[in-house]
Structure formats: structure tokens, C-alpha cells
């Protein structure tokens, strides 16, 4: 099968690769671009471990074809920290909001997208926003607290 030439921007860097038409954006990030921070938990859009943003929209990268990323702006977990950690990343460590950490990249990307839209969410709003991100280890309690604490800090800083 002939490959498709894809040109896109990932975490601000211009990248290009050749994608099999069947490959997902998740496959391309992990296998062509060596960005393995984005995880595959299901491949069917049910776990959120593969969450990234494409042109600012939160998507499951396992549900998007790599070819569809052509000309788009993709942001992954690897682009979240600058010289310092994003407040969400710092608060997740401080609150012990991860155990195995496998769901963490997807949850951080999703939570960042939430706080960009809603800087002062209720617990219930956080729970429904993150309902597509499965975590099997934590019971979500410390995740909700970490998101709230990061949101409070970001509001204070603004």
C-alpha cells in the first residue's frame, strides 16, 4: 500500500513522516516520531490514555488517522512542560495523583484542556470532563484534588 506524506507541527516543532493509510495519529506519534509519552490503553476510544490536542481540540489519537493530522497543530504530553513543569504536572506529583502513571499523560493533557476552557471547575465538572480517561489505580480522588489545586494556583497567578 502506498504511504502518505504527512507534514504537521508537534509541540511547536515542524515534523514530517510517511504514514500507512491505516495508521492512527497515535501510531505515528509513538512509532514514527518517537513520542512514546502518549499511551495506548485500548485503541478504541474508551480509555483516554492517548489524549492529545489537535488545533486545540482534545482528541483520542487512537481514533484519528495519522494522515488527518496533515497541516494541523498537535500538542502532546511531551510539550506540556516548558523550562518548568506545568502546574498540573507539579500538583499531580505533590498530591500523589498517580500510582502506576500509565493514565497520567492522557489525564494531564485532558485536564489542561479543561482548565483552558473552564479555569474554575466544580468537582463534578472535572469528573465529567475526565470521564473518558480511565484510571484503574487511584479511584480518582487524588486526581480531582490535584486538578482543583492546580486550577486554584493558575487562577491566583493570572
Amino acid at each position: 500500500m502506498s504511504k502518505i506524506h504527512v507534514t504537521t507541527t508537534v509541540n511547536g516543532d515542524p515534523v514530517e513522516f510517511l504514514a500507512d493509510p491505516r495508521e492512527t495519529l497515535l501510531d505515528a506519534l509513538r512509532n514514527h516520531l518517537d513520542l512514546t509519552g502518549t499511551k495506548e490503553g485500548c485503541g478504541t476510544g474508551d480509555c483516554g490514555a492517548c489524549s492529545v490536542t489537535v488545533d486545540g481540540t482534545l482528541v483520542c489519537s487512537c481514533l484519528m488517522l495519522a494522515a488527518e493530522a496533515n497541516g494541523k497543530r498537535v500538542e502532546t504530553i511531551e510539550g506540556m512542560a516548558g523550562e518548568e513543569l506545568h502546574p498540573l504536572q507539579r500538583k499531580f506529583i505533590e498530591h500523589a495523583a498517580l500510582q502506576c502513571g500509565f493514565c497520567t499523560p492522557g489525564i494531564l493533557v485532558a485536564a489542561k484542556a479543561l482548565l483552558e476552557r473552564n479555569p474554575d471547575p466544580t468537582d463534578t465538572e472535572i469528573r465529567y470532563w475526565l470521564a473518558g480517561n480511565l484510571c484503574r489505580c487511584t479511584g480518582y480522588d487524588k486526581i480531582i484534588r490535584a486538578v482543583q489545586d492546580a486550577a486554584a494556583e493558575m487562577r491566583g497567578a493570572a
Partner: peptide
């Protein structure tokens, strides 16, 4: 006490290497 876990930084930045990585 509740210090930060040593592997926390790798796990919030996507650097930690799991089985498929």
C-alpha cells in the same frame, strides 16, 4: 511524611518507559 516520589517527574512528562515504549 509525604515527599514527592522519585519517579514522579518522568511519569508526568511522558518520559517514563513502559512495556510498549
Amino acid at each position: 511524611t509525604r515527599p514527592n516520589r522519585p519517579d514522579g517527574l518522568d511519569k508526568v512528562t511522558g518520559r517514563a518507559r513502559y512495556g510498549a515504549d
